[in-house]
Computed example of a mutant assay.
Amino acid sequence: MRRISVLIGCLLLLFGSITVSAEEGLIEASYDYSDPEFKSIVNMLSMEGHANDDLSSCNVKQLYYQEVADMLNDGKKKDEILDYYVSEQGVKALLAPPNEGFNISLWVTPFLLILAVFILIFFLIKKWKKNNASLNRDEEDQEDQDDDDIYESMIEDERKKLI
């Protein structure tokens, strides 16, 4: 009888530990990849260049998803998780750099250069048109002067014939 009770106790202990470990597995897997907060965090990470890879076939992306999910389960907030990755890998851990300091100039400079080029092209075209118009006017004036000289000489020749 004693052996049976020890056997039953061992079986209960074994089945109890299996249940506890299964519940721990459920607690660890309690995150949801479709959660908006989870998506917003992983969409901001570059994942070492694997951000656009397929989750089912990319081990690096799966590792990042698991890490972010574990951090969310530990009660960390979005900013804490992003700060962790930035402290580990630097700003390159993010898909888009933060809008502060030198990063603002990196975003603004290309647009300012494009604007400056358009302004320069506008004024160059305006100057070329002005120079072209003045050259055309000079040529027309010269042609008019030549025509006037020709007509004058013809009139003078005709007048001499009549005199």
Rank of each mutant, 00 (worst) to 15 (best):
L82Y: 01
N43Y: 05
F111W: 13
G9I: 14
L94S: 05
K160R: 14
N59E: 08
E158W: 11
K127T: 15
S87G: 06
N99V: 11
M154Q: 13
S153R: 12
D147T: 04
I119H: 00
D53Q: 06
L55F: 13
M71C: 05
C58F: 04
N131M: 14
Q66T: 13
A29Q: 07
A22E: 07
A69S: 13
M1N: 10
D54I: 11
Q142V: 10
P110F: 09
A116T: 01
E139S: 13
K161F: 04
I121G: 00
I150A: 06
N136D: 09
S153L: 10
N52T: 06
E139Y: 13
D70E: 05
L162V: 04
Q62G: 04
L82G: 02
M154C: 08
L63C: 03
S56V: 12
K78Q: 12
Y64K: 04
L112Y: 11
A22M: 04
D148F: 09
L26V: 01
S57L: 11
G75Y: 04
E139F: 14
L112N: 09
C10Q: 08
S57H: 08
N43S: 11
Y33W: 01
I125S: 11
F111P: 01
K92P: 02
K61T: 03
S5L: 15
G75A: 08
N52M: 04
S34T: 11
P110V: 05
H50M: 03
R3H: 14
I125E: 06
I114K: 08
L94E: 04
L12A: 13
G101I: 05
K129M: 08
S34E: 09
I155T: 07
E24L: 09
E67P: 00
M71I: 08
L135A: 14
L135Q: 09
G25Y: 03
D74M: 12
L162Q: 06
N59L: 08
K61M: 06
E23C: 07
S34Q: 10
I27W: 07
W128G: 12
F118A: 01
D149F: 11
L12I: 12
K78M: 06
K39P: 03
N136I: 13
A29T: 01
I8S: 08
K129G: 06
F122D: 04
E88R: 12
N59M: 07
I155F: 14
F102K: 10
S40T: 05
L120R: 02
L106F: 10
Q89H: 13
C10T: 10
I41E: 01
V20P: 00
S87W: 03
L63T: 14
G16I: 03
D148A: 10
Q66S: 10
Y84P: 01
Y151H: 06
A69T: 03
L63S: 12
N131G: 12
G49D: 05
G25F: 00
W128Q: 14
N43D: 11
K92R: 08
Y31A: 08
W107D: 15
D141K: 15
K78N: 09
E80Q: 15
L63I: 06
D79W: 00
L45H: 02
S134V: 10
I119N: 00
L112F: 12
D141N: 15
K126Q: 11
L45S: 01
I155A: 12
E37L: 14
Y31N: 05
L11S: 07
S34A: 13
Q66R: 07
Y85R: 04
L14V: 09
S46A: 06
S17P: 00
E152A: 06
I121K: 02
K76N: 05
